[in-house]
Design a protein around this nucleic acid. Structure first.
Lengths: 347, 347
DNA sequence: CGAGGGATTGTTAGCGCTAACACGCACCAG
DNA sequence: CTGGTGCGTGTTAGCGCTAACAATCCCTCG
């Protein structure tokens, strides 16, 4: 990393420093043409071993680093993918992002993120446009919102976009976890324990996952010929789960509750504890997501696990396929798993 | 987003599509030189209003998007910053990332992330090198590890790198939360409640935050003339907190525990509940971080809040300063805040 | 009425790289 | 001895853009 100022004139003192060495500089030191250096770097075309060694030595000596802009300009490829991420610490989206980053890095792509605080048609479209201006080769939209899904309906055909978690109707490949199936598993588990019915704390109405979980819950109750209680709606936060719990605590005949995610389940547990309702003795509770803390709630929470890392990996795979000219209507579904713990345990 | 195939010849069917329009194409349509188009886009130099309108119309018509590689090649600026992020869902690092992304976006920079699963000297250096190859203009290293700090000691002087949360001794600007002060606040709060001493569940030894919190705890005990119990070490996870709790439950004279983070505090609460130890009646517990769920633990957790969004913002500020030729030894400290809840409440 | 000057536009060069082709040489078959 | 065939290397052009300078027009002012 030694920086060599031009031997003659004054050295620029700025952090930017002097000009970075170019292919031509390396070629000069190695005594070859710039083209030979290019061939050594990219492994294209034959180069005699001694020549290669001289070139590598020169690269080392100068601390040469290829100029990615120049390369991108001539090849038309930037080696960068964009991810439109929801600005939140929600366990799912954050984990998915890491899964994507990992898979992408292994395949030699860098990841540029553009976060969106309040998703909507325009903000998602803006974020995608932003990323395209950054010259990404493809975009992954983590789009758990209904509105995000709609934004994708206008996705251009000439640019690879894939969505994770939403946009069923959009003309882009979509990968999602089977939320309905997860909700079904949780609900059936609770029904199998002999409860008359199961209450549900749903997530925000504009989240597809919230809709699907609610749908899965409702379908399951129907299939078992059980009436569905009114839905209580939260916003994924523990606070909203707590409030839901305070209101539920007043219900008589409360047997079992399926919370839309683990955070809300936590709030629920808290509210029940304050109301003197014992879980699982008086009421059984299940959540969704299996955040790492769920096993240590009071009591440990039965929940539905989603493998977000896998989701991220497969999302990248879908995008790679799409960039290769693949189908715009590819779909992939990841199946969740029920994790049973004490919150639905024996009484 | 309407795509218009060239009216005459066959349309290439690949996802890559036909060549993107260039400045020259726009110039042709608008009947001006490519330079005038460039001036309209960048707002450099004077352009007559009618001309500008014609150019803008042509841009719109062709769906022109500037080629960022070409621009970067000639200006030497890419408008991209790199972030070396720890691959984890830990609340702190993830929140910091969003703070950074927000501040950067407002300033017109894009963020490229390079995640690192097991930080060490070389992996951090590799990640930075990776990002430099992506031609980022500066790098932010989220470096909570001791080893990460050491990696930064070799940071080159000619390239702007800043660290968040670690690398005190490194020749790079550092921003951190005053962990020692936070630990002092929590420990003093517990001592002020009349406890003889305070136990501590420390984070992993190679985390700077863990060291500093432990140090702050130990200093505070010393200053109050109180002997420090042996340190129990966890790994930030609820599981490790749970195990610590199981071992602590056997201690007699157990009064107060300061957990290194909220997740471990959760595990601790769980272990105590199983052991029939009531919090706060038998033992008082405090955590660190104030994750959004902490207020809904059983019981709600007293903890030390860190404003990670602020940390992210100031980190970007420090990097921006450094890129402007600022000091390599700038430091910024964010002061945390004690949030008192029931886990250290009245008995 | 010509010089000076600002506003507006154009022309040219070159950023650092890769693609495409050209060149020289050794080697072999006929 | 001649022509082909690789190998290893060099030369040239051009990707799309901005910086620098040149050119033009029109107006003002002495």
């Amino acid at each position: 990393m030694a920086e060599r100022p031009r031997s003659g004139g004054p050295v620029k003192a700025t952090a930017a420093g002097t000009r970075q060495p170019s292919l031509t500089d390396v070629a000069g030191v190695a005594g070859v043409s710039h083209m030979t250096v290019s061939r050594v770097i990219n492994g294209t075309g034959p180069v005699r071993p001694e020549t290669r060694a001289r070139v590598l030595a020169a690269i080392e000596e100068l601390g040469y680093r290829p100029n990615s802009a120049a390369r991108a300009l001539v090849t038309g490829r930037t080696g960068t993918l964009g991810v439109v991420a929801l600005e939140s610490n929600l366990y799912g989206p954050a984990s998915t992002l890491y899964g994507i980053e990992n898979a992408a890095r292994e395949a030699g792509y860098a990841i540029t993120i553009s976060s969106v605080s309040r998703p909507g048609r325009s903000s998602i479209a803006d974020a995608v446009e932003n990323l395209r201006r950054q010259a990404v080769e493809g975009v992954i939209v983590i789009a758990p919102h209904v509105s995000a899904g709609r934004a994708l309906e206008a996705a251009p055909a000439d640019f690879p976009v894939v969505a994770v978690g939403g946009g069923e109707a959009a003309p882009v490949p979509v990968i999602s976890v089977d939320q309905r199936d997860g909700a079904r598993r949780a609900t059936e588990h609770l029904l199998a324990l002999g409860h008359r019915t199961v209450w549900h704390i749903a997530g925000p109405e504009d989240w597809l996952e919230a809709r699907d979980r609610e749908l899965g819950w409702r379908e399951t109750l129907e299939r078992h010929g059980v009436g569905a209680p009114r839905v209580i709606r939260g916003d994924w936060s523990s606070r909203s789960g707590y409030e839901a719990g305070r209101s539920l605590a007043k219900e008589k005949d409360l047997d079992a509750v399926f919370a839309g995610n683990d955070q809300m389940a936590l709030g629920l547990l808290r509210a029940f504890a304050e109301a003197g309702i014992s879980v699982p003795r008086d009421v059984r509770v299940a959540g969704f997501d299996d955040v790492p803390e769920a096993a240590y709630f009071t009591p440990p929470l039965t929940t539905v696990r989603q493998d977000f890392i896998e989701v991220g990996r497969r999302t990248f795979g879908l995008l790679a396929g799409r960039m290769d000219g693949g189908d715009r209507h590819a779909r992939a579904l990841v199946v969740p798993e029920l994790i049973v713990r004490e919150s639905t345990g024996p009484r």
